[in-house]
Design a protein around this nucleic acid. Structure first.
Length: 210
DNA sequence: TGCCAGGCCGGGT
DNA sequence: ACCCGGCATGGC
């Protein structure tokens, strides 16, 4: 089982190479993207991020000062905007209270404490917390998403009813605890899903995992 | 034109 | 411990 997990990584990396994730220019942008992309297409998330940038409030302090209603309107394209605006506010409150709005300060804490803190926030569940830990804070945790679940399930490496923790455990038991590699592996699974599993069915015949 | 997209929450069993 | 409805926009 562990051998297969490692083999999949090698095949994907050979086929696709470095993915340069997360597609964002700062750790703070990673965090916003991680919240905005909950059950939402990345295209719509990018629209919402662009709106925030154009508003001139794209910073922890800027968004903290922005009224909730204005924030929710700016992120409309990402959907679920009333909830997501509250989630972003909730995170910012925590971020300033605990870390003075500084990602470098946050990065000093160990990952288990940070994960527990993030999970205690309304609107941050396991995938969002782990995306923040890995892609904004460079902590070695494996991110499990719908693509990961679908791909492993179709290859009979997990059961459809396996929990988030089960699947994460499988990866973390099978691999070195290397944030750089965890970063690439998750990005490669998303690349595989988007290019080969969702659209262009004929291309599935060329799936690098076959 | 309905279904889907890089989830999560709250209430129910 | 699961299961479900709600949340909302834009693409196909």
């Amino acid at each position: 089982m562990s051998r297969k997990i490692r083999a999949i990584y090698k095949k994907l990396f050979r086929a696709f190479g470095q993915q340069h994730w997360w597609p964002a220019k700062s750790g703070f942008e990673v965090i916003l993207g991680a919240i905005l992309t909950q059950n939402t297409s990345w295209r719509n998330v990018q629209r919402a991020l662009l709106q925030l940038k154009k508003s001139g409030n794209f910073s922890p302090a800027g968004l903290k000062a922005l009224p909730l209603k204005e924030l929710s309107q700016l992120i409309r394209p990402a959907g679920f905007y009333n909830f997501k605006a509250a989630y972003i506010k909730e995170f910012l409150k925590f971020f300033f209270k605990e870390y003075r709005g500084s990602l470098p300060k946050m990065r000093l804490k160990n990952k288990d404490l940070l994960r527990a803190q993030l999970l205690s926030l309304k609107g941050i569940g396991p995938e969002t917390a782990d995306s923040i830990l890995l892609y904004a804070l460079d902590k070695p945790v494996f991110v499990v998403d719908a693509y990961t679940r679908r791909i492993l399930s179709r290859h009979h490496l997990i059961k459809p009813q396996d929990s988030y923790t089960d699947i994460q455990g499988l990866f973390e038991r099978s691999l070195e605890q290397d944030s750089k590699m965890f970063n690439e592996y998750h990005a490669l699974l998303v690349k595989l899903a988007k290019d080969y599993c969702l659209k262009n069915k004929p291309k599935c015949q060329l799936c690098p995992l076959k």
